[in-house]
C-alpha cells in the first residue's frame, strides 16, 4: 500500500494526521459550508451585512419554504426529473443494444462505428447547438422537456456505448458460444444471457447519467426557456437574477438544486465510483 500506512508510522505523525484530516476536510468544503450557513440566516442578517457572525435568527424552514412558495422552484425540480429519468432509461436502453452489438459481433465497420460513438462523445457542444435547436423547432419540441430529453438520450448514447461495449467485451465469451451451441437465438442471448450479467454496468451508468443530466446547464438554456420547461440549473440562473441581493434565498435554492444528485451519490456510491473510474485500472 502506498503511502506507508499511518498505523506503521511514529506516534506524532499519526496524531498529526488524525488532527489534520478533519481540518483539511473543513477547508475543502468551506465554500459549501458558507453557502449552507447563509441559507439558514434571516433577511435581517443579510441586510445588516452580518454574513459571518453568529446568526441572529435561524430561519432554515422559513427560507426553504420561501424558495418553494415565491419561486417556481417546484416546477424546475419537476422538469429536471422529467428530463433526467427518461434520459437515463433511453440512453441505457439504446446503449445496452449498441454495446452488445459492438462487443459480441465481428463485422465490417464495427470498429469504425465504435470510434464514431466515442468521437461524438467528445465533440464540443457548440458545434451541435444551432442545428439541434433548429431541428427541435422543426419537430415542434423546442422549449419542451421532451425536446431536451431526446437530445440528451442521443448524445449520452455515445458515452454509454463506450462504457457498455467495454463492459460486455470483458464478459466470458464462452457463455455466448455455449448458448449459441444450444440453439438460443441472438435476441434471447441478449436478453437472458447478457442483460443479467451487465446489471452492475446498468446501475453504474444510470447513476452517472442521472447526475450528468441533472447538472446540465448548457442544453437547458439552449433548448428551453421559462418555468414551464426549464430544469433546475437554468432556473437557478434566472432566480439568481431576480433575487439579486437576497442571498439567503439564492443559497437555499442552490442547496435544493444540489440535493438530488448528492442523495443519489450517497445512496449509490459504489456504483457511481465504479462507473466513473472504469478504465482507471488495467
Amino acid at each position: 500500500m502506498y503511502p506507508t500506512p499511518i498505523e506503521k508510522t511514529s506516534y506524532p505523525v499519526r496524531t498529526a494526521y488524525k488532527i489534520f484530516l478533519p481540518i483539511s476536510l473543513l477547508i475543502w468544503l468551506l465554500p459549501l459550508i458558507a453557502i449552507f450557513m447563509t441559507s439558514i440566516r434571516g433577511a435581517g442578517d443579510i441586510n445588516a451585512g452580518n454574513y459571518w457572525g453568529w446568526p441572529t435568527s435561524f430561519d432554515l424552514i422559513e427560507n426553504y419554504t420561501a424558495v418553494f412558495v415565491n419561486t417556481p422552484m417546484l416546477d424546475y425540480l419537476f422538469n429536471s426529473f422529467k428530463v433526467a429519468i427518461p434520459t437515463v432509461i433511453g440512453a441505457v436502453f439504446l446503449s445496452c443494444m449498441t454495446g452488445f452489438a459492438l462487443a459480441i459481433y465481428r463485422f465490417k465497420g464495427g470498429l469504425i462505428l465504435f470510434f464514431i460513438f466515442i468521437a461524438g462523445n467528445f465533440v464540443p457542444f457548440q458545434i451541435l447547438m444551432v442545428p439541434v435547436r433548429d431541428f427541435s423547432v422543426s419537430l415542434g419540441v423546442y422549449n419542451t422537456t421532451l425536446g431536451l430529453t431526446l437530445f440528451h438520450i442521443a448524445f449520452q448514447t455515445g458515452f454509454c456505448t463506450l462504457f457498455m461495449r467495454n463492459f460486455i467485451k470483458a464478459l466470458p465469451f464462452e457463455l455466448i458460444e455455449a448458448a449459441r451451441a444450444e440453439g438460443v437465438s441472438e435476441i434471447k442471448i441478449f436478453w437472458y444471457v447478457v442483460i443479467p450479467l451487465i446489471r452492475p454496468a446498468i446501475a453504474a451508468l444510470s447513476v452517472l447519467i442521472f447526475t450528468f443530466i441533472w447538472n446540465d446547464y448548457f442544453w437547458a438554456i439552449v433548448l428551453t426557456q421559462g418555468a414551464e420547461s426549464q430544469p433546475v440549473t437554468a432556473g437557478l440562473y434566472s432566480l439568481n437574477g431576480q433575487f439579486s441581493s437576497a442571498w439567503h434565498l439564492v443559497s437555499a435554492g442552490s442547496i435544493i438544486a444540489a440535493l438530488p444528485p448528492v442523495l443519489m451519490f450517497f445512496a449509490m456510491q459504489k456504483h457511481f465510483i465504479a462507473g466513473l473510474t472504469l478504465g482507471a485500472v488495467k
Binding site: P31, N215, Y217, T233, S251, S254, A257, A258, P261
Partner: peptide
C-alpha cells in the same frame, strides 16, 4: 457531484 451552476454561485 454538484452542478457547475451551484459551484459557480458558491464561488
Amino acid at each position: 457531484v454538484i452542478s457547475q451552476v451551484v459551484v459557480g454561485l458558491v464561488f
